[in-house]
Design a protein around this nucleic acid. Structure first.
Lengths: 245, 245
DNA sequence: CGTAGAGAGATTGCATACAACCTGCCGTGT
DNA sequence: ACACGGCAGGTTGTATGCAATCTCTCTACG
């Protein structure tokens, strides 16, 4: 149909936004591995825009901590260590339970919608074995976001989502054992119950368990399932473009 | 000496950084009042650089929440309400005590340096009446930052400092009564003692008191001192360029 | 043989020109 | 009198050119 065929890639209509989304997705999905340099020129050409919107996208990603910017040298994908993981989850273990308590207190949450999300996650991961990790990740993020947005503290939601923007955390379920994943889904249903009650103490407590369980699952594959590969710093394979499931 | 006289304003050597600092200071000091539009062209001319670094500075400020960006319309200084204040302080009331506990646990804090800061604040504000609010603000920020940086969780420090970037919060002491300010300074000394002990429970508890006391001080001038002016949404006078002390 | 230095290539930082878009005003038609 | 449409001014979004900086390599000298 079109004659000038923009170098493929989803075109939303605004160059800077497109660049931001595309680069961000490439980082979160592991196509750009930690430490890799992001050249403005290369990105601009591959996206089909000039360097200006690319620079803007890279600044946003810098502010979000996904990439690291060195003056006159460029930006590279932020590398993370197990210490980063501990920082992130210890923060979540404080903020999410508190937000969950607030959500139960205000009582403004749409329990039915939350319950629907929990059930859809059951369907996507029958018996703890996900059929579509991306879908599951998306549903999980929406579940947690919905709770935090009901806390009536927009900064809390913003802070948490800014902190979990990291490939390993983002794709949490890649590292779950079936047992751990089943437990995670059960937690979700219990959270729905606690918020429906509503019982702030209960809700806070379940969320704390939920986050700390996730922490352990992602750290050391607690399920004892097939323990392949080395433990952590191996991240994703940079060639295939998709992280190992 | 120079013939082309850069329109004054501190020149650090890098246009984008200079623009960022200058605009940010103008917002935090109240020279740019809430809701005012920040025109790229005007800013570029006043700073003495082109629009490009100004745009970069504005994006950083957008990411930090100090300004609000509307596509094809520009950026305006973020307006805040008492609800924002509550969001910020309820978040601080969770995060800072926790960070203080962590700092006491790791025991990596430089207690002497912290004590020195507390004493310098006493000197700048004898008898609860500050002689230099800017100096006092700077010392206070360094005091709190030093504790959070000793928590061994860099994201925690980053999150807190990103959240307190707001004119009213930044210049907290402008709204303190002498009684409240004295109490705040006493808290600082007690924090030093708790961290020197070190007693995590004590440290956490004092910090919680400290933040919640600040919350009330800034909300309603709890000291009962000369209760002039309306209560909150009056922010700063946009004409004088300096907020009321 | 190793090291310091110069130079070329590549990349980012900044400035400027142009295009797209929004807003407010004015004129016209109903 | 009121509503619609278009035109003009101003502002942001994007592209492009040039300057500044960094890195890597090759060479010359100790």
């Amino acid at each position: 149909m079109s004659d000038h065929t923009p170098p493929r890639e989803a075109d939303n209509g605004h160059a800077a936004d497109d660049a931001y989304r595309l680069i961000r997705d490439q980082i979160l999905s592991g196509q750009r591995s930690a430490g890799a340099w992001l050249r403005e020129g290369e990105l601009a050409e591959s996206i089909g825009v000039s360097r200006t919107p690319v620079r803007e996208a890279l600044r946003r990603l810098t502010a979000e901590g996904l990439v690291r910017h060195e003056r006159n040298r460029g930006v590279q994908v932020q590398a993370w260590s197990i210490h980063d993981l501990d920082e992130i989850f210890s923060l979540r273990a404080v903020l999410e339970p508190w937000g969950c308590r607030l959500a139960a207190t205000t009582g403004t949450i749409d329990v039915d919608a939350l319950d629907a999300l929990a059930h859809r996650m059951d369907e996507v991961a029958p018996d703890g074995r996900p059929t579509d990790v991306d879908e599951l990740t998306e549903l999980n993020n929406r579940f947690h976001r919905m709770i935090l947005e009901a806390s009536d503290n927009s900064r809390l939601a913003g802070v948490v989502s800014s902190v979990i923007q990291m490939p390993l955390v983002w794709r949490t379920f890649s590292r779950y054992s079936p047992d751990a994943l089943r437990r995670s889904l059960v937690h979700h249903h219990e959270l729905v119950a606690a918020l429906a009650a509503p019982d702030p103490d209960w809700a806070e407590s379940v969320m704390r368990s939920h986050v700390r369980a996730a922490w352990h699952s992602i750290r050391l594959r607690d399920g004892g399932d097939r323990a392949s590969g080395p433990d952590l710093p191996d991240q994703v394979s940079a060639t295939t473009g998709q992280p190992p499931l």
